[in-house]
């Protein structure tokens, strides 16, 4: 069950989300929205790759699917935009069931690259769909009118609260029977299966959950940008970002993706400010990911956390 401390964190997160949405400068809110979306995306990929051991290289498919579904429903119905945002993950989560049933016939590397092929197919089908604007894409016009006001404010509130709620929910989830089964799965799939865990069902549940979460984060991101094209929404850079954030921060941990997001965005802002190009930024990040994988294949957080804790306990002891 949920603990009091976690309820307090939720409440604090809600407060921070609302206050931030009300008082933070609009330019900074855009950046923070992006940071939160990347964190949510990475956490989703981490749940699948780090916990369930199913490494997908096609999760950008769900970013694009989520965003396009959101744009289409919002533009063609009278359903309020923020309600559509709640609807999208449910739809995409359901859609992921048949996809997962097919894709799980593929193992490991085949599954990973097979998902990538799926994302490419979806990108090219979207580019051919004239009712989705083809290659030139779509503008967000909920109910046929331009979005008024500053969408980044509610978007930030949702993303901020969503990020806090996701981490709390995952902590609670990992304590449940299904969550313990997931942890068992991470350690050893065969052992988990022999201990009575229905591995296939659990894989499918996690696949659908991460598809839903990824689509919601994708929808949220494109609400703030108001405009979408297939080349942008289904781009491999989403996947690269999710993977680098998780791999550098820490695969299979809840804190790792947060650390990774800070490192990736921090490096990007610093390198942009110093006049480096996007290509140079990605070279540095690629090198960072490779080096971390070779030295600490489970990421920085699992490698650093014990040392930080040790340093913390010795410093509090010496104070006392």
């Amino acid at each position: 069950m949920i603990r009091i401390s976690e309820l307090l964190v939720l409440a604090a997160g809600l407060m921070a989300a609302i206050l931030g949405a009300l008082f933070i400068d609009s330019g900074l809110l855009f950046l923070l929205c992006e940071v939160l979306v990347i964190f949510l995306l990475a956490q989703m990929w981490n749940l699948l790759a780090g916990f369930s051991g199913q490494m997908s290289l096609g999760h950008q498919a769900f970013v694009g699917l989520g965003a396009y579904t959101l744009f289409y429903i919002a533009n063609h119905t009278a359903i309020p935009l923020w309600l559509v945002l709640a609807l999208v993950p449910c739809l995409i989560g359901l859609l992921a069931i048949p996809l997962g049933l097919v894709m799980f016939h593929l193992k490991q590397a085949y599954f990973a690259v097979g998902m990538w092929v799926v994302a490419e197919i979806l990108m090219q089908l979207t580019a051919k769909a004239q009712w989705l604007g083809g290659t030139s894409g779509m503008t967000l016009r909920p109910g046929g009118t331009m979005l008024s006001g500053e969408p980044e404010r509610p978007a930030f509130a949702i993303a901020a609260f969503g990020a806090v709620a996701l981490v709390v929910a995952l902590r609670v989830f990992l304590r449940t029977r299904l969550g313990l089964a997931t942890l068992a799965l991470r350690e050893n799939e065969a052992a988990a299966a022999s201990a009575g865990v229905d591995v296939k069902r659990l894989h499918l549940i996690l696949f659908c959950l991460t598809a839903a979460g990824t689509s919601a984060a994708g929808g949220l991101y494109y609400i703030t940008s108001l405009y979408i094209t297939p080349q942008d929404a289904f781009q491999i850079n989403w996947m690269i970002t999710m993977m680098f954030v998780t791999v550098i921060g820490g695969l299979g941990t809840l804190t790792g993706p947060a650390l990774g997001t800070i490192i990736l965005i921090g490096a990007r802002e610093a390198m942009t400010a110093a006049g480096y190009s996007g290509g140079q930024y990605w070279i540095v990040m690629g090198a960072a990911a490779v080096i971390v994988l070779l030295l600490a294949p489970r990421g920085l957080w699992p490698a650093l956390a014990p040392r930080i804790r040790a340093a913390f306990t010795t410093s509090t002891k010496s104070k006392a």
Binding site: A49, M55, L57, Q108, A109, A112, I240, M243, F244, V247, S277, G278, G279, Q280, W282, I283, M285, G286, A287, A289, V290, L293, L294, P297
Partner: peptide, 21 residues
């Protein structure tokens, strides 16, 4: 075995952007 695949993914990003640069 996925570690090696992820390493090659990182190498691919490096090579692609080095080529662009």
């Amino acid at each position: 075995p996925m570690v090696a695949m992820l390493v090659t993914f990182g190498l691919a990003v490096i090579l692609r952007n080095a080529l662009v640069e």
